[in-house]
Design a protein around this nucleic acid. Structure first.
Lengths: 193, 193
DNA sequence: GCATTTATGTAGTCAATGACAACATTGCGA
DNA sequence: TCGCAATGTTGTCATTGACTACATAAATGC
């Protein structure tokens, strides 16, 4: 019995294997031909699904954003206000910690440089949602006298920054995990608290 | 008159041209052979100075960190306390805005993945200095009751995050520059107060 | 059912690249 | 000044991204 001519679900397999490679070797260590080898298909097969390497990376980034958005959506259970802001920010940071490599892809200038319209649109809508949360929290009385734009910038910066500091090796201090986790929560509380 | 056999200062020329390329095409668009062409030397000449592409990127990152440290050093003129913290954080963010591509190199996981000991040591000492500033500010009465580790995490996250939000195109809102600058300052003031 | 169209995979090829080795030229110090 | 180390060149190789022509499977319409 020989290999079937068609792989079955090459597109999905490519995305999954690519994500594995990314966490091992990063964007530069990822090659379309290497993926083809790993999956036992011909060297040009991946091109049927992603016509360039950039397109593959973009698809992974898209997957990442969807996953991130889903993760933060759960925080909607909280009523608007400080608890909800805290939940949203923590959801983001925890998602980044749990999906380090996807997070790195989203942070990689070489990937985002070629971001598709889909991707940028999704990111923009994500930002809009965060902005709306700020407004809602202010309506509920939180920091009502501050400029919403400043609060928005602060929230986005702090969230992105905490995610980066929490996932990039360079920043990893020799701090035990429980302590680190509680530091993250306390740090966020400095803002929302 | 023919070209001299030796370039004269190829190493420096490589670093400069590479930085230009990086801001145009990013890490993936940078090639040792392309640099050689641009500088009119043979395709293998760059290898005399940087035996791999990663080594070149590391050298650029090293240059970047030195430049960043120098930029933040000026804030030392302020006396320890909130004004000094604010000055340090603003110096970082403004450096990132003025040196976007160097900042992107420092933020690029593919570069930092191969960071040399020099580079990580320098980054660690930079972090230590920030930690010391926190302590000094607390000694001067600022947020004296907070956990220094939490304040440190907060400062690093907020600084890195603001720099990223201020330099990555994805985040660039249609906000006029003066307004953006004042937002940055106000956002940082939310923390250093 | 069957033919035609579309999706998917293969084989072959090309230019660009990173990396290495062998050799050439220059300049500096003993 | 002589020799050696630094620097640059030429030649080469495997890998890669990307393209083309072709093969096969699958879906669709009749």
């Amino acid at each position: 019995m020989t290999q079937p001519y068609h792989h079955g679900n090459l597109r999905q397999a490519l995305l999954e294997r690519a994500t594995e490679i990314l966490s091992e070797k990063g964007v530069e260590g990822l090659s379309l031909r290497g993926l083809a080898r790993d999956l036992g298909v011909s060297h040009a097969a991946p091109l049927r699904h992603f016509s360039t390497k950039a397109e593959l990376l973009n698809a992974i980034a898209l997957e990442g954003v969807c996953s991130l958005i889903a993760a933060t959506k759960k925080a909607d259970a909280q009523t608007p206000g400080t608890a909800r802001l805290r939940a949203i920010m923590l959801a983001y940071v925890n998602w980044a910690i749990a999906n380090t490599e996807l997070h790195h892809v989203l942070r990689n200038p070489d990937v985002m440089r070629h971001a598709s319209d889909d991707l940028t649109t999704l990111l923009a809508s994500f930002a809009a949602r965060q902005k709306a949360e700020i407004r809602a929290a202010q309506d509920a009385g939180w920091r009502a006298d501050e400029d919403p734009d400043v609060l928005f910038l602060h929230l986005v910066s702090l969230t992105a920054g905490t995610a980066i500091v929490s996932t990039e090796e360079v920043y990893q201090q020799r701090v035990p995990l429980p302590k680190r986790q509680s530091n993250i929560e306390d740090s966020i509380d400095l803002f929302v608290g």
